[in-house]
Amino acid sequence: MTDNKRISNQNTRKVKYLGSHWTWGGKIWVMLLAIIPLVISFLLFWIYPIAATFVFSFSDWQAFSNTRQFLGVNNYIQAFNDPIFIRSLTNTFSFVALYLPLIIIGGLGLALLVDAAGRLKELFRMIYFIPVVTSVIATAFVWRYLYQPRIGIINILLQALHLPPQRWLLDPSQALFSVVLYTAWQSVGLNMVWFLAGLTTIDQTYYDAAKVDGANSWQTFRHITLPLLMPTFAFVTVIGAINAFQVFGPIYIMTSTGISSGDSPPGGPSNSTMVVVLYQWLTAFRELNLGYGAAMGIILLVIILALTLIQMRLFRTRWE
C-alpha cells in the first residue's frame, strides 16, 4: 500500500467515525443548542454594528435627529478632502511606526532580561506588568504631569543632567512621540509576557547543541532564539499594530487641556496628536455627526484589515 492510499484510508475512517456520532437525530442538536446563543450574540453585537456602521456611513445621519438621507459616497469623499482627517491618518501611521519598534524591542529586551533574572524572575515580571493592569486614565494623567515643562519631573531630571528641558506635550513636533512613549511604557509589560511565553517554547536541546558547536551568545540568539520566536513576533506585531491603530485613551487624557475641564478638545497642539479614532469620536460623539464618523470608522477598518492581512502573509512566509 502506498503512503497516499494509507493516508486516504485513515481519513475515510475518521469521517466514518465522525459520521457515526454527528447525526441529525443524535448529538447535533446539543451542538446546535450550544452554539446558537454564541452565533446570535455574534450576529447581534459584532456583525450588526459593523453592517449598520457601513450603512450609516452612506448617510448624513446626525445623532438624535429623526431623519437621515442617503448621501452615497459623499462622506468618504469629504474625509479625503478634510485636512484634519488626512492629518489624523498621517498621525495614526506615525504612531504605529513609532510604537511598534518600542514595544517589540522593549518587550523582547525585557523578556530576555527577566528570563535571565533567576530567582527574581517573577518579581521583575510582576513589576514590569504593573502598568498593564493599572488604569490608563490614572497613569496617563500622571504622565501628563511628568511631562509638564516647568514642574514636571522629566524636565527636572534633564536639567539635572545638564540637558535642555523640552516642552513635550506642548510642542507640536514632540507631542505625538511623548504620547507614544507613554503608551509603549504602558503596554510593553504585556509584550514581555508574550515573549517570555515564546522563550519557554524553545527546546533547551537547541541551546545545548549550539553550546557543543561552540556558538557564542550572540550567535545563539541570532540563529536559535530569534527564528524560533518568529510566531511570537508575528503575534505581537499584529496585535500591537491593531491596538496602535485604535489608540484613543492616552491621547484623550494627555492632550485635553485644563485642570478642571478635562473634556476640552483633545488632539492638540495644532492637531499634532489627532489620530483617526480620536477624530472619529470627536465627529461622531462630540459633534454628533454619526454618518461622517461611521465613514471614518470604515476607512480605518479597511486599513487595519489590509495591513493585518499583509503582516500575516509576511510572517507566514518567514516562519514556514
Partner: peptide
C-alpha cells in the same frame, strides 16, 4: 456650534505656540 471647537483649539495653538 460644537464643530467650531476643534477649529478654535487649533487656532489658539497655532497663534500661541507656533
Amino acid at each position: 456650534p460644537i464643530e467650531a471647537e476643534k477649529l478654535w483649539r487649533t487656532m489658539f495653538d497655532q497663534v500661541i505656540l507656533e
